[in-house]
């Protein structure tokens, strides 16, 4: 079981906060509306707790995965409900669309922008090069998505480090979450760069 001190968690929270803040600003610019971000959540949860507290395992979501390439490796996972995908694509396109392909490519492009602004901000802070590869989008059950992503990154524990930003739009919660899932050892490198 991984153990981090409060100081270390605060340090990580600050890094993610900066990344998420930049991501929120870039979405706001893109849709020309104020999109805000909650204080990021960093916690170690069992899958059971994750499904109870965050998103249930049987919920169908749009899941966008972008691999992180550069000095650190890992994955950015953007998970959005169908309703929120409608809202975000409507904001981006300036009109409603029923075309699922148009909607998905809007969400995909949005993720690309979010991921790169998130990683750019973190990279600047830590003085490392981080970019995301082109996103892959898939509609699937949240449980299948999240467990498979962690395991693809060799994180096999029943408890996982959940690093998540949640976005809101004009006081309304958007069912959109950004998960930052670094490869094993990356968080330690981040803490080292911070001098913690």
């Amino acid at each position: 079981m991984m153990g981090y001190s409060e100081l270390e968690l605060d340090g990580l929270r600050e890094v993610i906060n900066i990344g998420g803040g930049h991501a929120a600003t870039s979405i706001s610019k893109l849709v020309n509306q104020k999109i805000e971000m909650h204080v990021p959540e960093i916690s170690i949860l069992s899958y059971h707790e994750l499904y109870e507290q965050v998103i249930a395992d049987d919920v169908e979501v749009h899941a966008v995965v972008s691999s992180i390439v550069g000095d650190y490796n890992g994955v950015i996972l953007f998970v959005v409900s169908d309703d929120s995908a409608d809202k975000l694509s409507e904001l981006m396109l300036g009109m409603k669309t029923d075309d699922i392909n148009v909607k998905m490519s809007a969400v995909s492009e949005l993720t690309n922008i979010i991921s790169n602004s998130f990683l750019g901000a973190i990279g600047n802070l830590l003085n490392v090069q981080l970019v995301s590869a082109l996103p892959v989008i898939q509609d699937d059950y949240f449980g299948a998505v999240i467990s498979s992503v962690y395991m693809a990154l060799d994180q096999y524990d029943d408890h996982i480090m959940v690093i998540r930003n949640e976005f809101t739009y004009s006081e309304e919660k958007l069912d959109a979450s950004l998960f930052f899932i670094p490869e094993t050892g990356v968080l330690e490198q981040i803490l080292k760069s911070l001098g913690i």
């Binding site: 899958y47 059971h48 499904y51 395992d57 049987d58 699937d140 059950y141 949240f142 449980g143 299948a144 998505v145 467990s147 498979s148 395991m151 693809a152 029943d158």
Partner: peptide, 23 residues
């Protein structure tokens, strides 16, 4: 049945597990 678990049951019950990815 949750992830990393198993359960045993008898008819007429149904056994369900959701969100199998690589599992």
């Amino acid at each position: 049945v949750g992830i990393a678990d198993y359960k045993i049951a008898h008819a007429p019950s149904k056994l369900i597990t959701v969100g199998l990815g690589s599992c």
